[in-house]
Design a protein around this nucleic acid. Structure first.
Lengths: 211, 211
DNA sequence: ACCTGAACACCGTTCAAGT
DNA sequence: ACCTGAACACCGTTCAAGT
């Protein structure tokens, strides 16, 4: 698209990020990126080793946008805010969040977010192993919820979804789900997320009292 | 490889499943599958509409292998067993499990597993909405744990991983993680999974008592 | 009905060449 | 040092043709 006189690593990452943001994985290729930069496809390889390395940079740039919320003093509140901030990041750039999830190469920025989680639970007084496990549990929950939310799992079912579900879920083969159909059909991402977070936080609290 | 006189939908799915099982996503393509079947690539399209439809069939065949554990009478035990059976399925065929995770088209077999979850929590006496939310929380937890486990996140760090981590996690920028390094470095998938499950089950229990 | 073969519109990446 | 261009070894899928 816009011709750039001299390529830089950063410009390439920037444009790649915009492409992912607006079009998602399907809209991105090294060749399309080159086209957007007004450059031969192979020019990119002079600045980034390959596709995967470039994507690591995109993910890194994406994660560095994330603001860590300030502490309140109550670990339950802080954990909730940190999880919500991660979910917010996911929702603000769904396509790049999906890219981050699918990208299995580790990226340094992840440790900044991880540190915030660890600090909160450590200060709350959990023992070391519980802190480590609790962080994994919480970040796991938040990220997988966000993935499902972005995939549209927490929207109320529309007519065609419901029809498809009713087709396979009949009263004799799926009595429980049939009884629960009203609650399965209606979903509220906000309340559902808060519910799971409450369950986990409550479960963790017991580890603290049990000392 | 082996020449088949007449293609059937089932044979195609079977061979595709074996390819995914042994080689994963990278080792599969419609053309390679055709090669394995000793047939022109386009012959497959006579039996399956396209790549995505074929993969739905593979996922469906995979999920139908899953045995639902018998009930014990204690919902806490039953939930644990059901989650472990899902995790077991993931570990027995990691590549197909990853395929299932990445595949965003809904597949009927999913509802069989879902029904088992709903039944347990419903029988345990939770109210409707809590059942639905609890099932989502538990299956979410189990699947995302399995994904991480298969990606190697719950293996103790080897020397190169540790070196990479120490490089970005220094005492002044990451004090909490530095303190916790021993517990971050050692991980035990079995115990870590049980921990998370306990936390969630304990958190759910409160919903029952709170009535 | 079932399969083939050529063709289309793509990929990521290597390698030799240009400035 | 930085970029180009041709080439390689792939993709999924359409379409017309063969049996």
């Amino acid at each position: 698209m816009a011709k750039i006189k001299k390529l830089t690593r950063e410009q390439i990452v920037q444009v790649a990020m915009e492409m992912f943001d607006s079009e998602g994985d399907a809209g991105f290729s090294m060749r399309k990126l080159a086209g957007k930069l007004g450059v031969d496809p192979m020019a990119i390889y002079h600045h980034h080793a390959n596709r995967n390395a470039l994507i690591s940079e995109v993910v890194q740039a994406y994660l560095s946008q994330r603001r860590i919320p300030t502490r309140s003093g109550d670990w339950r509140v802080d954990i909730r805010e940190l999880c919500q901030s991660l979910r917010g990041l996911a929702k603000s750039h769904p396509n790049i969040f999906r890219l981050y999830q699918a990208h299995d190469t580790w990226v340094p920025e992840e440790s900044r977010i991880s540190e915030a989680f660890h600090t909160i639970l450590l200060d709350a007084g959990f023992e070391s192993q519980t802190v480590v496990r609790g962080v994994r549990l919480l970040s796991n929950y938040t990220e997988s919820f966000a993935v499902d939310e972005l995939a549209g799992w927490y929207k109320p079912l529309d007519d065609s979804d419901r029809a498809q579900l009713v087709q396979t879920v009949s009263a004799d083969t799926h009595p429980a789900m049939t009884r629960l159909m009203d609650d399965i059909g209606t979903a509220d991402a906000e309340a559902d997320f808060a519910f799971g977070l409450d369950v986990i936080v409550r479960g963790l609290e017991a580890e603290l009292v049990g000392d």
